[in-house]
């Protein structure tokens, strides 16, 4: 299987894999900063654990497979996978959860399928789904964002202790620290028969989406737009995904605004923006043709809405990305651009 990037044949630019991956890392910084501000040190500790485990796993797998170490370690692809997965994990996820997720991502989803460029599934999302299916309790223990109800001043040491020995600080009860995420709350309370307006009055919701969450989304949007501006990511995938999500959300919202959350809420909530710019744009597992990328993105957006509204999980970016990963080769096949001068049809 060869991986071919469709580019304009007239402009050439020397961009190595390492440069692309480093740009992705830079672009994640504003979003990570916002997450750290609202959810504390745990986010950064998770990032460090994930990076260390990912580099270890990558080194071991490269050695076992007899591949050049320096070349593949310096392309930063393992670090990108680590960061993408770590950002998606709950802030105080126990260390073994992070390590296991990275192991599934790097060893199983990436190297067992042939390494960078050959993996059919997005490694970070494959690792995330393994954790989500296997450890639903740990994966849904999210902190309440900072500044809500009470300032939970978890110190660096508190976070470290929670992550490495699962001892939560005794001066807070678990209920004071953790709570439902906005999408989770929306899902359960619509199930209880409340209307969207009533649910949105809860303090966990902010201006557009969830309190705190919306700023992280803004950070990821800024980084993502920079990626698109530098042509590191193709605009068609995020546009397709957010567009698809917005269109289907609008249809349902117009049909019954009391039962279905407005489109701007859906676009701005959960992992939608992060997924659109950082996850779905993975060049290895996404569709590669121009029209194909729009279809691929739209497919993810629609699946996200279906899973959020009618599925068993509050958010569905990971599942949607994996499902569309399977579809990507077929999409590519049917959206081959017509060679200039070739006959139509």
């Amino acid at each position: 299987m060869r991986f071919k990037i469709v580019t304009s044949p007239h402009i050439s630019q020397d961009v190595s894999v390492g440069q692309i991956m480093r740009r992705v890392l830079y672009a994640m910084i504003p979003g990570i900063a916002a997450l750290t501000g609202f959810f504390g040190w745990g986010i950064l500790i998770n990032l460090v654990i994930a990076t260390v485990v990912a580099l270890l796993a990558e080194t071991v797998m490269l050695t076992v497979r007899g591949r050049p170490l320096a070349l593949h370690l310096s392309d930063f692809s393992a670090v990108v996978t680590a960061w993408l997965l770590a950002v998606a994990l709950p802030p105080l996820a126990p260390w073994w959860l992070t390590a296991l997720g990275i192991f599934s991502a790097i060893v199983v989803a990436k190297h067992l399928y042939g390494g960078l460029g050959y993996n059919p599934f997005n490694p970070a999302m494959a690792g995330y789904v393994v954790l989500l299916i296997s450890f639903p309790r740990e994966m849904s223990t999210w902190l309440i964002p900072h500044g809500l109800d009470q300032p939970h001043a978890l110190s660096f040491l508190d976070a470290l202790r929670a992550i490495f020995s699962s001892e939560w600080p005794a001066r807070f009860t678990l209920d004071a620290l953790t709570g439902a995420t906005p999408l989770d709350a929306l899902r359960t309370q619509i199930g209880l028969g409340l209307t969207v307006t009533e649910i949105r009055n809860s303090p966990i919701f902010g201006i557009v989406a969830g309190q705190g969450w919306e700023w992280a989304a803004l950070g990821f949007l800024a980084g993502g737009l920079w990626l698109v501006y530098t042509r590191t990511a193709d605009w068609r995938i995020p546009a397709g995904m957010l567009g698809g999500l917005a269109i289907i959300a609008t249809i349902f919202y117009l049909a019954d605004p009391q039962h279905y959350a407005p489109p701007w809420f859906h676009v701005w909530s959960g992992a939608a923006i992060f997924g659109a710019f950082f996850i779905a744009t993975d060049p290895v597992t996404a569709s590669t043709t121009s029209r194909g990328r729009l279809i691929y993105g739209a497919g993810i957006g629609i699946l996200v809405y279906i899973i959020r509204g009618f599925g068993g999980y509050p958010d569905g970016v990971a599942f949607s990305v994996l499902l569309m990963n399977i579809a990507a080769p077929a999409i590519d096949l049917y959206t081959q651009p017509r060679v200039f001068g070739a006959r139509r049809g």
Binding site: V108, L112, V130, I133, S134, F135
Partner: peptide, 18 residues
């Protein structure tokens, strides 16, 4: 041991057999 549900579920069968 907390259990690793994935291994019991169908994906575990495919990965294990592989």
């Amino acid at each position: 041991y907390r259990g690793f549900l994935l291994a019991i579920l169908p994906p575990g069968a495919f990965i294990g057999l592989g």
